[in-house]
């Protein structure tokens, strides 16, 4: 009874919003980089299997799995970049790096091209654009970056923060 009274008094007080979109503040382009690398890895595996000329059911099954994974990873890459671009980049970051809009759009198109085709170059372009994005992201936080070859296939150069 009294508890109900307290609840009703509390809810009768108007609320004012002090909202953040998400209060966690956790943004990192690494997930997008991993996804872009995975796209290249799947393209490599697809090309390897294709070179074997295998047309049996097992090969078809494996190829289908590679393609499905490539599709999935390209989508993850797009989603991760869109969230950072849409939620993290605000006026101060955009003013400092106005190229971010064009870069993000190019990245979306590169990811779609990687989905549509089987050419390795599409994947390489995606990794390169995601690296450009990561470099800008860390610069907005005034954190230096370094480039290093990732220690696993497809052994491509990746931008890492120097923490």
């Amino acid at each position: 009874m009294l508890s109900k009274l307290i609840n009703s008094i509390e809810s009768s007080i108007p609320a004012v919003a002090a909202h953040c979109d998400i209060p966690c503040k956790i943004y990192d382009p690494y997930s997008a980089q991993i996804a872009a690398l995975s796209v290249v890895r799947m393209l490599d595996l697809m090309n390897e299997l294709n070179a074997k000329n295998g047309n049996d059911l097992t090969s078809q099954n494996t190829m289908t799995r590679y393609i499905a994974e490539k599709e999935k990873q390209a989508t993850i890459c797009k989603e991760e970049i869109r969230i950072i671009w849409g939620d993290y980049f605000k006026k101060p970051q955009i003013d400092s790096f106005p190229v971010i809009h064009e870069l993000t759009h190019n990245l979306m198109m590169a990811a779609s091209a990687a989905k549509q085709g089987a050419e390795r170059d599409n994947g390489i372009k995606l990794v390169s654009l995601v690296n450009d994005f990561a470099e800008i992201f860390w610069q907005t936080k005034k954190i230096d970056t370094k480039k290093a070859i990732c220690p696993y296939p497809p052994s491509l150069e990746i931008v890492y923060p120097s923490l």
């Binding site: 509390e10 007080i13 108007p14 609320a15 004012v16 919003a17 002090a18 909202h19 953040c20 209060p23």
Partner: peptide
């Protein structure tokens, strides 16, 4: 006027 706060954007100065 009295208000209650929803959201964390003013923490730690003002909490929910």
């Amino acid at each position: 006027k009295l208000y209650r706060v929803e959201g964390k954007s003013l923490e730690p100065k003002i909490t929910e």
